[in-house]
Amino acid sequence: MTETLFGAPPRYPDVPDGQVSGSRLEKALRAGKFVITSELNPPDSADPDDVYQAAQPLGEVVDAINATDASGANCHMSSLGISALLSQSGYDVVYQVSCRDRNRIAIQGDVLGAAALGVRNVLCLTGDGVGAGDQPGAKPVFDFDSISLLRTLRTMRDQGVFLSGRKITRPPKLFLGAAENPCVTPHEWRPERLAKKVEAGADFIQTNYIYDVPLFEKFMARVRDLGLDKRAFILAGVGPIASAKAARWIRSNVPGIHIPDAVIDRVEQAEKPAEEGKRICVELIQQIRDIAGVAGIHVMAYRKEHLVSEIIREAGVLQMGRRKIAQPT
């Protein structure tokens, strides 16, 4: 324990036994609860209230909120800024770090800064190419890849050194996450790649959107064969479709999203497409939660945070081993 002034609680508390970070997400997962996470759509604004407003509807239903790092290579408020604001308001946050925009010097420093600001969960991502975003002329960095980033952060946490070997006096306490995209080529190698991420240091996994349950089941069967579900907590990614047109656009313009034709047809033929898209998402959650090895879900609804809470309530997953609801102070 560090010394504190006037008997105040330590600003950088020690981690409880059996945990690596002390985050609420880690605690819930290790307690065997079916965990729910979601992502916050970052504002194009410098006003903290915009962050709090976006987080409010999520905080009632999720265990942790992901702060995306310029996803799709589009510029928004930084994930570090959002993570700090939300952590200090009592939310449990997953700080997303993409390798696209920062080199190893910046990332290692940012992660220490984030930990000092109260962040305990980090999701290590490669990041979409700059060409996918609103400033395609930017220089792609990709100094790390997601896997070497994971190993680096694990080294900082467990060995207490930077990649250079220089000592970190108070190492960051982090619950390390990685992404996986089970429904995208090369399907047969995705579980092997997941194995590599776990080997590199991933404690939890959040997958990209899953709309193809049979494909995901096949993936999970292999994951179980490799014993990966015992070494990392796997949260399956889901999200509602707004319309058939939107789904087709996403499928051809957003990297790494596979939506089967049958799903799009169902939305197209429905009287109320948005309602049907939500219904499909609820059904996906109900199918996915019964797959062995799935530790929770990650609900992503782009610019539709209010839908997340409806979907989670309708899917009936709130009752599955409920936890204390994260409330802002």
Partner: peptide, 27 residues
């Protein structure tokens, strides 16, 4: 790899195994 990934493919591989950034190139 346009992202110079050293540890495996990214999540953006296109159907048929093509590159996210350079769609005419195999991943």
């Amino acid at each position: 790899c346009p992202k110079t990934l050293r540890n495996g493919p990214c999540g953006g591989v296109r159907p048929g195994g093509y590159c996210e950034v350079k769609p005419q190139m195999k991943c």
